[in-house]
Each structure stands twice: as structure tokens, then as C-alpha cells.
Amino acid sequence: MQFATTTSPHVHLGNSVGRVMRRVVYALLPGLLALVWIFGPGVLVQAAIAVSTALAAEALMLTLRGKPLGRFLGDCSALVTALLLAIALPPLAPWWITVLGTGFAIIIAKHLYGGLGYNPFNPAMIGYVVLLTSFPREMSSWAAPLTLHGSTPDLATTLALVFGERSAETLDAVTSATVLDLLRTQIGLGHSVTEVRSSPVFGLLGARGWEWVNLAFLAGGLWMCRQRTAAWQIPAGMLGALAVISTLFWLVDAARFAPPWFHLFSGAAIFGAFFIATDPVSASTTPRGRLIYGAGIGVLTWVIRSVGGFPDGVAFAVLLMNIAAPTIDQYTRPRVFGARA
């Protein structure tokens, strides 16, 4: 009798890359549903465009690089990148924006750096930032939330806007500036935060409507941390640091700086903390390093929002901290068992 000679360990507890990625998708579902409820079916249209583009681009790149298609398409990593980007884009953005962003994310930010596991930057955020800097107008026209208009654009309107001719009137009717945008422009005009926040786009915590979306993302994110699919240290570090620094400045000058709950529950803070920053490939890997990495994103997000040139700073903050991740790892190695402290 002849047996296979593999090396130990001979048992595996069944985890796989595909399982990790699928769990991320499951965790995204509540937030995705909330987005549909608040902003209409636009996000689903964007998701469909992004996913098909991502899979096509992934298949193309895998073929070019001579990698087995089945194994690597089955890992769902392209699916996750596409969904993250689709959620980050305005629901009514024209289709070519999505295709361009997703293609850039998969082909350049992922595969040209060596594919799964080798990309130093979060591909979805690279795609997002490329779009944000190249097409600022298209990227800032967000659909107005349900709570503001009493209704959301139906599927036909959405498809027409995404794929068809985009007239200024129809667009104005269904979109509005985001709260972070509004806050930035109004403060720039010399209004105080309290004055600005009396505007109807603001809700109890953050932006009207966005609060619910963010709570849904929070639920999915917490589940993911519990499943240990995401490292809890990163969202904890990021949200903690964002809360601390915004509280400090808010206490110093409440007229110029928004309160911490506003920072936490508007824009991409929650979504970014649980779904963007926790991308393991580009994040820090040591326990302490993850806390520092998260905290760095939190601080940078606040800085970019408050004094930077863009309304939201999560994407830039994540990319900047991606650069720092290897260095953080270097200096935060855990104490080895048995080594003197």
C-alpha cells in the first residue's frame, strides 16, 4: 500500500480565501439594502455594472498572466472590490464612471501589482480616488435621500440617468449635495456649524438618511469582526481616533468644528472603518499595528475633512496609511512567547 506523503499538519479547519471574501459580501448586505431604501435602486445598478466589469477584467488579467481561472475567480476577491467601489460611487453616476473605476481598480491597482495578496493599496479605493480626482462633478452629484424628497427615483429614471442622456434639470431634481460638501462650503462662507446644521439635509446624528445606512453598515461590520473575518482593532482604532480628535476640536471651537457624532455617522466613516480599512492585504497585520493603522486613518480622515481640499477623506486616509503599513508592522512585532518583555 502506497500513501501520499504530505507535510504536517494533516488537518485543516476549512477556512478559505473564498469563504473570507463571501463573508465580507454577506456583511455588506444590510448596508446595501439600506442604501436602496434611502437612495433608490441606483446602487444596485452600479453594483451590477461594477461586478460584471470586475469579473471580466479579472478573467482577462488571469488569462494574460496564465493563472487558473476557476480557482482565482472563485475566490470572490474581485466581487468584493467591485461591491465596495459600487457602494462608494454616487448611485446615479453615469455607467462609464463605474466601468472606468472598476477596470482601473482590478487591472492596475490589483493585477499589475501581482494580483491577489500582493497589492500594496486597496484596489477599490484606488479606483475611487482616480475617479474623484478625474471627474469631480460626476462624483459629487449624490442622489437625494428619501427623507428629503419623500420619494426615491424609480428604476426607469435611474437607468435613464445612468445610461442615457443626463440633462441638468432631471439631475437636479433627484440629487443634492452631500452634507460634508455643504458643511465645507458653508463654513468656508463664514457660517457656524450650528447654522449649517439647521439645513434640512442634516439629520439627528449625521446626514439625514445616511444615519440609517451607516447603522446598517455598523451592524454588518460588527458581525464580521465577531466572525473574525475583519480584525476588530482597525475599526476600533479608526473610529476611536476619529471620535477623540473631533471631540477635542469640537470642545475647543464648536462653531468651526462639527461634533464627533456627526463625523462618525456621516460620509464613509463607518463603511470605511469596517469594510475599506480592514482589507487585510493592504492593512497592517500585527495587533498593535492594526490599532495604530486604524487610528492613523481616523486622524487623517478628520484632518482631510476639516482642513483638506476634499469633502470626505476616508479614501485618501486609507491609501496614505497603506503606505505606512509595512513600517508599522516592522515596529509593532508582538513579544514572542518566552522572550523577556
Binding site: M1, Q2, F3, A4, T5, T7
Partner: peptide, 17 residues
């Protein structure tokens, strides 16, 4: 190195019992 053995060594076929 597992890198080398992964390329060179296929799972040995089990002889029929």
C-alpha cells in the same frame, strides 16, 4: 522548499489496495 516541491511533486497515485 515547498515552492520547488509544489512544482515537481504531484500527489503520488495511491496503489490499488
Amino acid at each position: 522548499s515547498p515552492l520547488i516541491s509544489a512544482n515537481a511533486q504531484q500527489e503520488p497515485a495511491r496503489a490499488a489496495a
